[in-house]
Write a protein that binds this DNA or RNA. Structure first.
Lengths: 395, 395
DNA sequence: CAGAGTTAGTATCGAGACAGAAGAAACCCG
DNA sequence: CGGGTTTCTTCTGTCTCGATACTAACTCTG
């Protein structure tokens, strides 16, 4: 599409909407860090002349900087790579669980600069919005550009939460409510979509046009990037892979599926299995510790059986995703990927079993940064939505 | 991207490469049949003025025609819809099996106009190319624009067959060999990709940006359209869903997978199961006849058990594809979908079981036009490759 | 160490594609 | 029959682009 078409007029804040090429340039520099104009020209399909023209306003406004010249040993004039000044903007990302708002503040590349949280006693909109406000107050020094909020459930593009089981919400205009409360632009998105978007622009999926994200924690989440776009269907909030059949002989989940992904992989299901078998309560970390290689004490056999069954199930799931979504990269994230430290080899064997030996090797990336990716994802969505406004002057 | 960038210079035949907008217009009119300029403007994000300008050369060259005015009862000037003259070009599509070349001739919309086939005694390149030549001679009245060839295996974009197990080929430049023999432009593509492309532009997937295609026949094939593009990975020729685990208690396939998609769904596996149980040879159609509702004769119970197990397995596969590829439309094609006439209700029940009841309804389309879709798919690929050259004058 | 070769980036300018404005065409309706 | 409505075209100004020619800054070679 040529230039700024009238088709996707957000009409959000003001006039200075960037042209298509300018926005593409901003996106590319933001994602791919210090990068030469010539390289940008090749990627965007533009001539060097256009790159000079397009990058000038960004340099004038202080959004781009020219990095140090580095000649890399090759002949010719050294490149003066373009980069964004990541500190020109601040963003706040907040993940909502059933009890609390967990927030991080980030720079333009979704790098975490600080964190804060606030719990809410009940899940009324007022209580949740107030918790969000407290997190924002704790994190914002007055320079934040926008706020991203992510939660499990179905979210419309307008920021209306259509369905959020954890909060018991239906058709709540959360974006408007938070904007009312804190006075900043607010973006709301499904949590898995947000996490996937963060991996796409700022994480392990940077530069990839097709990959999948699997998260393991309280449940199992699934996000997909196809054709350089995060797939965003109406069903994305339902967690369609939450009850994917993986082991016909596995335990039951609370919805009655035998050996589904939740029954096999969620942290709660795994520790429950071991606790039941051993007759004493154990949490997830204790299960992993018991199953660790070399540990030979009462319960190790049970823990190992459960962890290895989970690893086999995960392998089956990863292979299914790679085969069906036609991706060659799968990113694993979430609090429950600790099982890989114990049973990585079992996982790899299970993947190999369900995947054609002639197929291209599967790139499995483990993002073990714990819980912050969820909040970081929310910030990433806010950043993405703001790129179109990057042309505006600094405040 | 604005205008014709130098990035994807095919440098195929000659100069008259269309601009991006012109190509998009040609594509849109070709796919969406008689369509008003105003509607085209909305879809392509162009002003009415641009539509007039862009469509003029196509009209002048006789590629487009203005359809009859139809006022549809609404007020205002009636639309003069644009349409392509489908008879201005002829294409030939050929599907290669292990023994024969099966061809169809089509118009610009891949509508079948005639068919022909030729078998080859051995799978040497010379024998296959000669069979292709005989098919072309039988179908071409001298007006064919291009030839599309599809086959099971891995095909590079250049037309080189990297791997074709059915033919025992490796790294064969089939496009060049056929071009040498018949003197027309030749496009070679994987058969499932070609079939998917045909559904995308001219079949049940017309107008959809995301859907999946499952084929059942001698094996199980899988194609995916995501973001309005046919997914085309290096692994696409391997048939990654050919041995997808579906039933832990099912029979073995010849590669030793228990209850995989081939073991459960392929025509050969189904009839083999029934034949073994009954102690007499039966072909696929006989199995379906035995399993038909109301039939109660010796063997019906066995046939029904096999067919229903296949339908359940297919349901599980369809649900997995819908959930993981995030599509809401799945097209079923191939010679082996006859089982649906017997066990459609079993299939629907199996899909429902593996899919969230709150998920958007799954649109299941059955393309039961038998074998010609395969050859038609090959023609469709040739047509798609030719759209960029549509600006050239008629011959 | 000088100059040839190479790569990066910039200023100028003309070509091309675009949308907006204005108007013509062809219908409906009262 | 004239006003309203929608479709489509013509004209024109604007904007973005790439080509060209240029400067800049480095390496390599003799």
């Amino acid at each position: 599409m040529a230039r700024t078409t009238a088709r996707e007029d957000t009409a959000d804040t003001a006039d200075p909407v960037l042209s298509d090429s300018s926005r593409d340039l901003a996106r590319e520099v933001l994602i791919h860090g210090p990068i030469a104009r010539a390289e940008l020209g090749r990627r965007l399909g533009l001539s060097p002349a256009s790159l000079s023209r397009l990058s000038k306003p960004f340099l004038d406004r202080g959004i781009f900087v020219e990095g140090p010249e580095l000649s890399e040993g090759s002949v010719g004039r050294p490149v003066k790579p373009l980069d964004v000044r990541v500190d020109t903007r601040r963003f706040i990302g907040i993940k909502l669980t059933g009890e609390a708002a967990l927030g991080v503040s980030t720079d333009l590349r979704a790098t975490e600069l600080g964190s804060a949280q606030a719990s809410f006693a009940d899940t009324s909109v007022a209580a949740v919005v107030d918790a969000v406000r407290r997190v924002v107050v704790a994190l914002d020094d007055g320079s934040a550009t926008a706020i991203g909020i992510s939660l499990g459930g179905n979210v419309l593009e307008t920021g209306v939460v259509q369905r959020a089981p954890f909060l018991g919400w239906r058709d709540i205009d959360l974006a408007a409510a938070v904007h009312e409360s804190v006075g900043l632009p607010v973006v709301v998105e499904n949590d898995v979509v947000a996490l996937t978007a963060a991996e796409h622009w700022f994480g392990a999926g940077r530069g990839l046009t097709d990959f999948a994200v699997l998260t393991i924690g309280a449940g199992v989440g699934y996000g997909l990037v196809a054709g350089d776009r995060v797939t965003r269907t109406a069903d994305v909030g339902l967690g369609l892979l939450g009850h994917y059949p993986l082991d016909a002989t596995g335990p039951l989940c609370m919805e009655g599926h035998r050996g589904c992904s939740t029954a096999m992989l969620s942290m709660g299901a795994m520790s429950a299995q071991v606790s039941t078998a051993l007759g004493r309560p154990l949490d997830y970390d204790e299960v992993l510790a018991l199953a660790a290689p070399g540990r030979e004490e009462p319960g190790s056999v049970v823990a190992r059986a459960v962890v290895e069954a989970a690893a086999r199930a995960l392998g089956r799931l990863v292979a299914a995703v790679a085969n069906i979504a036609m991706v060659s990269t799968v990113i694993l994230s979430g609090e429950g990927i600790g099982l890989l430290t114990v049973a990585r080899d079992v996982l790899d064997a299970a993947i190999a079993q369900d995947r054609d030996p002639d197929a291209s090797p599967l790139d499995l990336v483990v993002d073990d940064s714990g819980f912050t990716p969820w909040a970081r994802g929310a910030a990433a969505v806010a950043i993405q939505r703001s790129v179109a406004n990057l042309g505006r002057a600094e405040h």
